[in-house]
Design a protein around this nucleic acid. Sequence first.
DNA 1: CCTGGCTTTATGTATAGACATAATAGCGTC
DNA 2: GACGCTATTATGTCTATACATAAAGCCAGG
Lengths: 227, 227
Amino acid sequence: MSGWEAIRAEVLSRIRRRDWPPGALIPNEEALAQEFGVARATVNRALSELARAGVLERRRKAGTRVTALPVRKATLDIPVIRAEVEARSQRHAHRLLARARQPLPPALAARLGAPAGADYLFLQTLHLADGRPHVLETRWLNPAVLPDPAPDFATLSINEWLVAHVGFATGDIAFSAEPASVEDAAALGCAAGAALFITERTTFTDVAPITFVRLAHAPGYRLQTLL
Amino acid sequence: MSGWEAIRAEVLSRIRRRDWPPGALIPNEEALAQEFGVARATVNRALSELARAGVLERRRKAGTRVTALPVRKATLDIPVIRAEVEARSQRHAHRLLARARQPLPPALAARLGAPAGADYLFLQTLHLADGRPHVLETRWLNPAVLPDPAPDFATLSINEWLVAHVGFATGDIAFSAEPASVEDAAALGCAAGAALFITERTTFTDVAPITFVRLAHAPGYRLQTLL
DNA sequence: CCTGGCTTTATGTATAGACATAATAGCGTC
DNA sequence: GACGCTATTATGTCTATACATAAAGCCAGG
């Protein structure tokens, strides 16, 4: 038995078998390396993976222990909407519903770390899957990141433009449930007050805020992942 | 400049600077190792991390390229409810609303890979934060994993018992928005039809299905994470 | 032109050895 | 006993080297 995946599996199974119960200290890397007949680096790789998954907690000098109250970590894939729709072999299209220069609402300015009342580009886009409303995207975009003249978002999806031109940035994302506003309902073709799955995302680079997006998903949307 | 984090940062900044635009093939590990004056393993570590984050795509022989349509990967922490409540320094309590042996509904049997109509333990628990309804937990539990006699879940939270005694298992998790049923509304103290954030989780070990849980979160709940 | 097999190549993983770093545990002092 | 310093120790990372593996591309034979 060798290879870091085999070792990870063996350690996991010992934990499941309660050879090493929650909270217990497990043998150090050197000991395990010797037991399994591999190099310490191989054991390190296996244990590091398990720590990343939240199964183990590791601290220098203190050693490695089985997590007592595990915070399960799930990895979500957040695809570009078009890719998501096309992955289900549906046709994707989008319609630009609104586009305006507008002062950023104070609540959003705070979240983005932008000056209050800054002049932002407001965009509202309806994404369609096979012609049916799929997601209503409401976005405030920092005009400073746009080239002059600004791209025509009627043809090119904003998000894809950002992905291609602004590149990778940090931010945060939040999920919640909200009743559909009258505006949401009209765009998505559902009843006002219907339960909608909402994704809110803020993104910024180290130098400037970029964008805030609220995605209102049509009823029935599920976000799913393996544990 | 050395250390895999420094190299990861440098590569990322070249991507952001569009030295290496989306879709481009980047130099191979050997070349980068030489350029940065480090061992290939160090470059490998840096590039592997970026691949895991979805920034790069790597294939043997084909090389490493910048992801064209990046699927952002967000890692969610899924805490035990009690820990989540106490982390906000609120008091956690729970009340067992229902407990019964009941045949597993066919839809759930299929999802858990259990025989149709199997006899499962049905449990409904209301979690309170500072005395106010927080989450309504509806669970079907495979009685085979329970010891005899079964623990008294009125005092001990089911989930914590499972975490401590069944240990790590695989499964999947899904998030959605649903209107509150009459039952949900009564337990959570909200209006029927209100938009609720729903978490559904199935867990099983390699040998047996364990449990299906539906968590109906009180209105206002947000699930948040850094990107 | 297609197909099967071989070669080449970039990444993936393993190894032994070394040094870095964080943090505990123990010791000595007050 | 309380405090602060130091020695010890487990993990974290790096290096150099080697072999494994997937897969793209080439070439030959049909």
